[in-house]
Write a protein that binds this DNA or RNA. Structure first.
Length: 573
RNA sequence: CGGGGCGUAGCGCAGCCUGGCUAGCGCACCUGCCUUGGGAGCAGGGGGCCGGAGGUUCGAAUCCUCUCGCCCCGACCA
């Protein structure tokens, strides 16, 4: 009996919450002026989110429903690969972060605080440390492995620059999972299971996406991939080869710049008065920038390094950092001091400092600074005029050739929606998360970590699917399956049929939002399109007189008239 | 952190340069009438510490200084 009362109440509550007149859906006719990204504008206008402060967002009922839909998919696919859901604190003691060294490595991006006793604490930006701590306490034997634990948990990062609405925030929810294995083979398997699960997740969420090679960065470990949703609103770029399928974040994408027609110059010094940049000199000498060497002096750990790329290429800081470590550009005064000539006329010839040069400079003849004010040297050749450490340190750009198959690469802007890392023992070793193998040897657990940002999925879905009228949700993550639009709430017949359809659809497990407001038809249409529920069921007086209602597809705008009795079947199918 | 922009009603904006009536417009909101297939119409109404502090001035939304917040570009992004 008690149970019955409860469920009756629940039923009533549910119904109230599916009526537009009762639900909190504050739609806006105009977008706030500080919104720029389409997803940000539409989520705000359609009443999905509100901003509390920079990088902090409130999810309103519609927005929260979308996140829950996404989370449900995440959970299903995680459980399918044997991951077990747990929940970790977001307030962490400093010691654990100190043990892995990240307490010191990570800078202002970590929120730090002290508890009342003065103990250092931080807010979790990710959970490798805490997950590993747990494993270190509980895992003893190879028999306890493998394990995969996951959570959908809040992360906090004091971002240098929150941006694009919900895409880059200081507090966000993340599905993060962690695998613990006794062997590299085990990790490989879990890594692959996650990659497969991620493909299913993003497909189910209706996204266009791709998996690309990525830079493990400070996460450590050897291998990592990112899942990217193509969109101009993204902040990453990937290089894609249409020939062999090679795809990688431009931070590490390898490419071969298109070769230039070989020149056979005699070495000579050319007077280039006041011409300093590659652009200036190449215009002055009427030669393509590709015949020049761009030399950039940087300071790494107090020692100078001369980095060189071809004149038509750009140096990629991250690629260079992977070779020489953290570095900064040299000051103008340092250039003069170290190389003996002002910036603009520096070149590799005769220099004795460390030189790191882009692979493509190995071949060909170039023009470079003569290390003498207002002069450049024509006819410089690698091996003859200078020696260097050879690496791919240029930014891959559209039209560069694939290192694997030689086809021209394309560059695409993307939103990062997920990543997977092979961590190895980076965290288990310092935190002493170890196990005994069959022979009784103590070994560190082999780990992987895997993240997905649900809010980014939502934002990416909107970025990829919208029109001038509003959002067009993929069915799977829409806040409702269908929206009922009784156009004239003053017409008793309309109301009666709307109520009937509403309860019939609900009874069949279809989530319906009924726009029961006493608004005019135009307002309801506009809001329905803005909110973006995939199916609109339109109840107009004229059609109802003939026993018909209209079912309209939000995406295609196609509408079909069907008999009232057929609505449920039609929507369900 | 560097560069740029903006803070005036819930939202979008004007006014500021060249100081001076009661700070204004559109939308939204409230009341009534009317209307009901693409953000209707008429009439009436409520809502503001002009981001904050200090200064200049007889007088500051407006000029000056400081400060806080938000957005964009860059740096950064485990």
């Amino acid at each position: 009996m008690l149970y019955c009362q409860h469920s009756l109440q629940a039923q009533k509550y549910l119904e109230v919450n599916m009526r537009f007149s009762k639900m909190f859906i504050p739609t806006l006719r105009e977008a706030p002026s500080d919104a720029e990204a389409i997803s940000h504008i539409l989520m705000t206008r359609a009443g999905y989110v509100r901003q509390l402060a920079s990088g902090l967002y409130i999810f309103l009922p519609l927005g929260w429903r979308v996140l829950n839909k996404i989370n449900a998919i995440l959970k299903e696919e995680m459980e399918k690969i044997g991951a077990q859901e747990i929940s970790m604190p977001i307030l962490h003691p400093a010691e654990i972060w100190q043990q892995t060294g990240r307490w010191d490595v990570i800078g202002d991006e970590m929120f730090r605080l002290k508890d009342r006793t003065g103990r250092d604490m931080c807010l979790g930006m990710t959970h490798e440390e805490i997950m590993t701590w747990l494993a270190s306490k509980e895992i003893r034997s190879y028999r306890d492995l493998p394990q995969t634990w996951y959570q959908i948990q809040t992360k906090l990062r004091d971002e240098a620059r929150p941006k694009s609405g919900i895409l880059r925030t200081r507090e966000f929810s993340m599905k993060d999972s962690y695998s613990f294995d006794a062997s590299d083979e085990g990790l490989e398997k879990n890594y692959q299971l996650h990659a497969d699960a991620y493909h299913k997740i993003f497909s189910r969420c209706g996204l266009k996406f791709m998996q690309v090679e990525s830079d493990p960065g400070m996460m450590g470990g050897a291998t990592s991939h990112e899942f990217m949703a193509p969109s101009p609103a993204g902040e990453d770029e990937v290089a894609i080869c249409p020939g062999c399928g090679y795809s990688a974040n431009v931070e590490l994408a390898l490419s071969v710049p298109v070769k230039t027609e070989p020149k056979d110059w005699n070495k000579e010094e050319v007077h280039t008065p006041e011409k300093r940049t590659v652009k200036e000199v190449s215009n002055f000498l009427k030669l393509s920038p590709a015949y020049f060497i761009k030399s950039i002096l940087v300071i790494a750990d107090k020692t100078p390094v001369l980095a060189m790329v071809r004149g038509d290429q750009d140096l990629h800081e991250k690629k260079l950092a992977n070779v020489i470590g953290i570095h900064r550009p040299a000051l103008k005064t340092e250039v003069k001091e170290i190389l003996g000539v002002e910036a603009g006329f520096i070149g590799p010839a005769g220099q004795t400092i460390r030189i790191v040069a882009d692979n493509c400079l190995k071949e060909g003849m170039y023009i470079s600074g003569a290390n003498k004010p207002h002069y450049h040297t024509k006819g410089i050749k690698a091996g003859q005029d200078f020696n260097a450490e050879w690496h791919d340190i240029h930014s891959a750009k559209s039209g560069d050739l694939c290192t694997k198959c030689g086809n021209p690469l394309g560059i695409e802007r993307v939103i990062e929606i997920g990543n997977i890392f092979k961590l190895g023992t980076k965290y288990s070793a310092p935190l002493k998360a170890v196990f005994l193998d069959e022979e009784g040897n103590e070994k560190p657990i082999i780990m992987g970590s895997y993240g997905i940002g649900p809010a980014r999925i939502a934002a990416a879905a909107i970025e990829q699917s919208n029109d001038k009228d509003g959002i067009i949700w993929p069915k799977s993550i829409a806040p409702f399956d269908a929206e009922l639009l009784p156009l004239n709430m003053n017409d008793p017949k309309t109301v009666k049929i709307a109520e009937k359809l509403y309860s019939e659809l609900s009874a069949r497990g279809i989530d319906v939002l009924m726009d029961d407001r006493a608004e005019r038809a135009g307002v309801k249409f506009k809001d329905a399109d803005l909110i973006g529920i995939p199916v609109q069921i339109i109840l107009g007086e004229k059609n109802l007189k003939e026993g018909l209602v209209e079912i309209k597809n939000r995406k295609t705008k196609e509408a079909v008239k069907v008999k009232i009795e057929e609505v449920v079947g039609k929507v369900k199918g």
